[in-house]
C-alpha cells in the first residue's frame, strides 16, 4: 500500500518538472507556430551553461539562476533577431528544419566541449532532504519544491496571458497571425516578448532538470519528447492542463519504473499514444478567458 502511495507521490512531483519543460514549448507551438525540435537541446545547452557558472564561481545552482535568466533571455533575443526573424515562415517545414539543424549543432558542439560523460548540478544538502508525513511514505523536499515552482510559474503565465494587454495580443496572434497583423497588432514585438517568456521557462527548467537528473549532450531528445507529449495531452492554450498532463506523464513513468526500471520511458510514451488514440484533441481543450 505504501509502495503504491510512494509511486503516486513521486509521479505527481515529477509532473511538475515535465510541466515546466512543456510550458515553453506550448508557447512556441501555439503562438510562434514553430515546431521547435531543438527545445530539448536548448534546455540541455542552458543546463551546461549553468554547470559552467556553478563550477567557475563555486555557487549553488539556485544562485546561478540569477545570472542564467538574463543570459538565457539575451541568447534567446539574439537568436530571435538573428535567425528566426529571417526565416521564411510561409512554409512551416522551413523553420522546423532550421530548428532541426540547430538541434544537431548544439548536440555535437556540446559533445566537442564537454564529452559524453553525464553531468549533474549539485544543489547540496537539499537533494537528500526528505520528510515522512506517514510511516513508510517518503517525500523529497527538492521534488516538492520543483512542483511548487512549476505551479507558481504557471500561475504567473496564466495571469499574463489572461489578465494583461500583452496576453490579449498573444492570444489574438495565436488565433490568427494574419488577422492580428491586419488589424494592427505588432507581430514582431509580440513574438519577441513571447519568446522571452519561453526562455525564462528554459532557464528555470534547465536548472531544475540539472539538479534532479543527469544530462549529457544527447539528453535533449528525451526532454523534447516528454515536453511534446505533455503539450499534446494538455492541449494548447490551457496552462493548468499542461500541469495536469505533466502529472499524467510523470505518473505513467513512475508506474512503469516501479514494474521495471527499463519501462520508465516506454510507459510515458505508451500512455501518450493511447491518449492520442482515444482523445486526439488532448485531455484538456482550450478555454476562452
Amino acid at each position: 500500500m505504501t509502495d503504491i502511495a510512494n509511486v503516486v507521490i513521486q509521479g505527481v512531483l515529477l509532473g511538475g518538472l515535465f510541466a515546466i519543460y512543456a510550458l515553453g514549448l506550448s508557447l512556441v507551438f501555439g503562438v510562434l507556430r514553430i515546431v521547435n525540435i531543438a527545445h530539448g537541446d536548448v534546455l540541455v545547452l542552458v543546463a551546461y551553461v549553468a554547470l559552467v557558472i556553478c563550477d567557475s564561481f563555486s555557487i549553488s545552482p539556485f544562485l546561478a539562476l540569477l545570472a542564467l535568466i538574463p543570459l538565457a533571455l539575451l541568447g534567446g533575443f539574439a537568436f530571435q533577431v538573428g535567425v528566426f526573424e529571417r526565416v521564411d515562415r510561409r512554409d512551416p517545414l522551413v523553420p522546423m528544419l532550421v530548428a532541426f539543424g540547430f538541434a544537431v549543432v548544439i548536440q555535437n558542439g556540446l559533445l566537442l566541449l564537454f564529452g559524453t560523460n553525464p553531468r549533474k548540478l549539485d544543489a547540496g544538502a537539499i537533494e537528500q532532504l526528505g520528510v515522512s508525513p506517514f510511516p513508510g511514505i517518503n517525500v523529497s523536499v527538492l521534488a516538492v519544491m520543483i512542483l511548487v515552482i512549476a505551479i507558481v510559474l504557471i500561475a504567473i503565465f496564466q495571469a499574463i496571458l489572461y489578465r494583461s494587454r500583452f496576453g490579449i495580443r498573444v492570444r489574438a496572434v495565436s488565433d490568427s497571425e494574419e488577422n492580428a497583423r491586419l488589424i494592427g497588432v505588432d507581430i514582431t514585438a509580440t513574438f519577441r516578448k513571447a519568446f522571452m517568456m519561453v526562455m525564462l521557462t528554459v532557464a528555470v527548467g534547465a536548472v531544475l532538470m540539472g539538479i534532479k537528473t543527469n544530462f549529457d549532450p544527447f539528453s535533449g531528445a528525451s526532454r523534447l519528447l516528454i515536453a511534446f507529449e505533455v503539450v499534446v495531452i494538455g492541449g494548447l492554450g490551457n496552462l493548468w492542463g499542461t500541469l495536469a498532463a505533466g502529472i499524467v506523464i510523470g505518473l505513467a513513468q513512475m508506474v512503469g519504473a516501479s514494474i521495471d526500471v527499463s519501462y520508465q520511458t516506454l510507459a510515458g510514451h505508451l500512455v501518450f499514444l493511447v491518449i492520442l488514440l482515444i482523445r486526439p484533441q488532448g485531455l484538456f481543450p482550450k478555454v476562452v478567458g
Binding site: R165, I168, R169, R171, A172, S174, D175, S176, N179, A180, I183, V185, G237, K286, V288, G289
Partner: peptide, 12 residues
C-alpha cells in the same frame, strides 16, 4: 478572434 471574449476583442 475566437479565443478572446467580446470585451477582450474590444480591448485588443
Amino acid at each position: 478572434f475566437p479565443s478572446l471574449s467580446v470585451e477582450e476583442n474590444i480591448r485588443l
